[in-house]
Structure formats: C-alpha cells, structure tokens
Design a protein around this nucleic acid. Structure first.
Length: 297
DNA sequence: ACGTTTTCCTGAGCGC
DNA sequence: TGCGCTCAGGAAAACG
C-alpha cells in the first residue's frame, strides 16, 4: 500500500526516467483510471499528447508532473499530469515490447520511441488526470489537492501549527494521523508504526495529548517514513513496486503493522490486531494502553 | 461546520 | 472443484 515513502520512490523514478520526454500518444484502457478528468478519457489524452513532461513533484501521496506545451515551457499553461496510486496503483517505465500487464489502465508513449510510462492498477482506487495549477501558486500545486496538507518531509511543514491543530480536534489520534488535511502522506502502516514508537493507543482522544506527546508522535512519524524511504519503501507483495518493478525492503523492519501474535520488540508482549474503521490496527497492549473509558451516565 | 460512515474495486486466502 | 465469505484500504461523497 503506497504511502509517503513508496510514493516518493516512484516520484524519483519518474524524475529519472520520463522528465524531458515528449508524449506522442496516450491509450486509456480503463475509463475509471481517468474518472477525475471532468471531460473524460479523450480529453485526457488530447491534453497530454504533444506536451513535454517536467520534473515530478509530490505532496503526501499525490504526484504531479508539470507539462510544457510544444511552444515552450509557458505554453503548458500551468497544467500538470496528476496521479494517485490508491491502494494498488503502479507507475512502470516499461519497454514497448513487454506485453500489456493484466491491469494496465493507461499508457503514455513518447516521441523518442523509448520506454513507455504505464499506469497499472488492480483495484482501481488510483487514477490520473490533467489539471491546472492553483492560481498564483509558485509550486504549481494542482487545484484538486489544494486542501491536502504538507507532509512531514516537506521543509515547509509547520510543526507548531500541526501540534496545535491536532490537539484542537475532537477526535482520536489515529483518525487525526490519517486525516490528509492535517498531515499528509501517513497511511495505515506508518500510523501504526508511529503510534507504537510513541507508546500511544490508536483510540486516544487527541484532546488528552500534551504538546510534547504530539511533538514526539510527529517526530516518530517523520523518522519511520524517512527510514522506510532509505530502503526503498515497504512492500508486502507485488502490489507496491518502483518504476522498474522492484520491491522495497522496509516490511522486515516494521515493529507493529502486520505482526499480530508476534512479540513486541520492546517488551515481548504479543502484538494485537484490532478491527478499526473497516481496517486493522496493530498495537502492543502493554506499551500502548487503551484509554480509560469514561464512566458515563 | 465538523466529525463519522459509506462507498468504490478486485484478487488472495480460507472454510466447507 | 468451486462457491461464498472476508480482508486489504485512500479519500471523495454522503450522512448526521
């Protein structure tokens, strides 16, 4: 499941392999992959064809590639190719002779006749679109992601603002970590890892956390994602790979996620898995004590 | 306005 | 062998 480190690995791959190349043609093999393109698949293809791809950018789990038109950089009009991998999306740089993948959704061909860019997505939660940048934004952030918060690896992420905003929420801590308008890039895996490192239970009300506790949680989220990025991200199966189809190695370094019944690496207690919001939360029942239920009524 | 729940999707894994 | 069920989960949309 691609979260910030995995998406960053893909961003680097795009910067290496497709920047500076001009699109000669686009095949949309599944309309759902471009469902965020208001005018549909044909419009998506028309807006891309003939443009030259710039250096890939990222905010949280979103990627975008600035487009330059045939008339020069300005002629792109501030448009970008924006993408989200969802749960199972892959962007692969693939030789044209390689047979189409089973779940190939979109293909970009280039004027140099070299390796294609393929968007492959089994569960189709991900997608691509061509979009205009937010008016006057020097970073060229596409309009549809203007509400996404900066991520903790962004130098302009404001720690103090985040700490205050999280404590002001009337919700629980894991919900807040997964709220992309508060902090972006954190998904289920790194949320559980950051909570384990911080010895916090996922159901702790945010309002009960002290400023130092939230600051520590943020530092741990940042650390665990940086460590995962350093080894190519987390892969449980073939669903997350870099643009060359290779898996990352962080899954063996996880302390909580996916470790049900295995001993906590701090205290030896068996890690538990709890149903949480139609998904799972992994935690150490000893290190991460559940909040005391309020004696109501 | 804000917080919570539902919805979208497909393949792996499992019990019977 | 195959059917039905559960699970994986990001984030927009719908709901309260």
């Amino acid at each position: 499941m691609p979260e910030l480190p995995e998406v960053e690995v893909v961003r680097r791959g795009l910067a290496n392999w497709v920047a500076g190349r001009t699109v000669s043609g686009v095949d949309v093999l599944h309309p759902r992959a471009v469902r965020r393109q208001p005018a549909g698949a044909a419009d998506f293809a028309a807006r891309l064809t003939g443009t030259t791809l710039g250096a890939a950018q990222r905010r949280g789990k979103y990627l975008w590639v600035p487009l330059a038109g045939p008339g020069g950089p300005a002629a792109g009009g501030g448009f970008s190719l924006i993408g989200h991998l969802g749960m199972s999306g892959q962007l692969l740089v693939q030789d044209p002779t390689v047979p189409d993948e089973t779940h190939l959704r979109v293909r970009l061909r280039f004027t140099d006749g070299g390796r294609e860019l393929r968007f492959v997505d089994q569960r189709t939660f991900g997608g691509l679109a061509v979009e205009e940048a937010e008016d006057g934004d020097p970073e060229g952030t596409p309009v549809s992601i203007a509400h996404i918060a900066r991520d903790p690896l962004d130098p302009r992420f404001d720690d103090a603002v985040f700490v205050a905003a999280l404590r002001a929420r009337r919700t629980t801590v894991k919900r807040a970590l997964l709220d992309q308008t508060l902090i972006s890039g954190v998904g289920n895996i790194y949320a559980d890892e950051a909570l384990w490192r911080s010895r916090l239970h996922y159901d702790r009300p945010t309002a009960t956390l002290t400023r130092p506790q939230v600051a520590l949680l943020l530092a741990n989220a940042r650390e665990v994602m940086a460590a995962a990025l350093a080894v190519g991200g987390t892969s449980f199966d073939s669903l997350y790979v870099n643009v060359n189809g290779e898996s990352g190695y962080f899954s063996r370094d996880l302390d909580a996620y996916g470790r049900e019944h295995e001993p906590c690496r701090r205290c030896g207690t068996a890690i538990r898995r709890a149903a949480w919001m139609n998904r799972s939360s992994y935690f150490c029942p000893r290190c991460q004590r559940a909040p005391r239920l309020r004696a109501g009524g």
